[in-house]
Design a protein around this nucleic acid. Structure first.
Lengths: 162, 162, 162, 162
DNA sequence: TTTT
DNA sequence: TTTT
């Protein structure tokens, strides 16, 4: 039916990029979204939302989004549940992003290279291809030798516990 | 910042209505929202989203929404965490509704009185008053002697585990 | 970038279905959406929004939506301008629907066959195929001999004055 | 009923700030929102959406938003019509913003003082007070002697042709 | 713990 | 040019 979520916030850490067994890229990150109102104690609270991105859009997120950067996310809210190691059922709610906009520079004291100096800076990009992923060469990521999350992992495409 | 969710689905059961210690009404229900796509096995999956409604809008939801009925919900996505009885931290994601539209009739074979025959049928209503609740007399609910959820409960206004 | 509109309202008249020169179906209708607040005179005002739907979704709308019926529309807001017969530039703002949900029955005193009795009653359907239109046989519409809007017309696919 | 629009784009020029006869501030600007897809000729088109903002939020927009800057706008889509000088009825569709986020820096070659150096840079702010305007002193704007749009004008609060 |  |  109708299920739409639109968020604007900052990444709490760098995205994690993984690949499913059939080679589809999937990125996950958490987005901190400040509330517009303050609570009874006068403090501004923050919601932390788990974002999942698939295919080519996942790889672009892993490449251009970093901890502290701002992003606008549009997608649908998904619920899943799985059994953890202790045999307990864990309920997960996450946003499956269909559109991610990289906006603005990074937060204060973040270190690292500035967003402004990079390609696609301030720009957006098209729709996540629903036609499946893998169209972009994974060699594009070889310039980051520490990205150990980029190896294929043993998860099914639509049942990703994270 | 920006945090908006819009959903259209059916209630999985009747809403639960409670009152905080200071008398603010809060209703909770779960909304089943079918996905628009089918999975690899060709089945249509469903997301089950927890909805929280406050104040006068909570009382209207408790009065007019029932299991199986369709509703459109507009609100923001909220994350909370609390410690359960076993000392585990539980993470909750829920939609705090600011606008709820009662639409359509109820499902087949649902029993109970038809939505069509009731006041406010098919209609909408104004914004949830952010100015706090309690403006509506709780005696209005006395015509339902079995509504044991309508007693005040010991929860703080913005930390509602359910 | 980000451009999303979500509406819930009633059709002010039956949808109009046309076909572009290359055979793509396009339906248009106007959706009446009541405001949630009243104006200074205490009257509830209404916004009338022009909706455009393409391809298979256009044909489904033409088939199942009628004047007075409720629909939820999700899409993007589009602006166009064209020169009219008198040489004036006309500015148009419309919603290009990517998802339309047929909800609820029809209004009181509307006459005609009830939505409840028809196939897909109360149901929704999948995404508008972006893969181009024309996949559905137009003969499906031959049971309506008065639908003179169903002939191909001389408009380009993305410049539709209506 | 349900009427929500969410946009992310850039201002095509500086906002115009006016005041209604009863002293309520109203700002208007046009937001350029690039489409995510290209047309048949391979060009990326842009939608230009008219935004209206009221009260304190209007004054903040006039103060912090400038031509070329990025903004996220959340609001409802409104339609109006009025008779122009030639006696023709003009139909207007615009977005009445309830939440505006000032994001990112300004566009290339824009000149003027940088957003980064100003207060509220990169920040957001609370909801537009629906409780009516005028709470902020208009003298606050006297430091800009060229802002000739800041004089009271003869328009009613909810019928603003622009 | 789930609705049609 | 408007729906309930």
């Amino acid at each position: 039916m109708l299920n739409r979520a639109i968020l604007l916030g900052r990444l709490t850490k760098d995205p994690e990029l993984r690949y499913t067994q059939n080679g589809t890229a999937v990125a996950t990150f958490s987005l901190a979204v400040d509330r517009r109102t303050t609570n009874q104690q006068g403090e501004r609270e923050t919601d932390f939302l788990n974002i999942v991105v698939w295919s080519k859009l996942a790889e672009l997120c892993a490449q251009y989004l970093k901890k502290g950067r701002q992003a606008a996310v549009e997608g649908r809210i998904q619920t899943r549940n799985y059994e953890n190691k202790e045999g307990r059922r864990v309920y997960v709610t996450e946003i499956v992003a269909e559109n991610v906009q990289f906006i603005g520079g990074q937060g204060q004291g973040q270190g690292g290279s500035g967003f402004q100096d990079e390609p696609y800076s301030g720009g957006g990009f098209g729709q996540a291809p629903s036609s499946g992923g893998g169209s972009r060469s994974r060699d594009a990521f070889n310039d980051n030798p520490f990205a150990d999350t980029q190896k294929p992992i043993d998860i099914s495409d639509d049942d990703l516990p994270f």
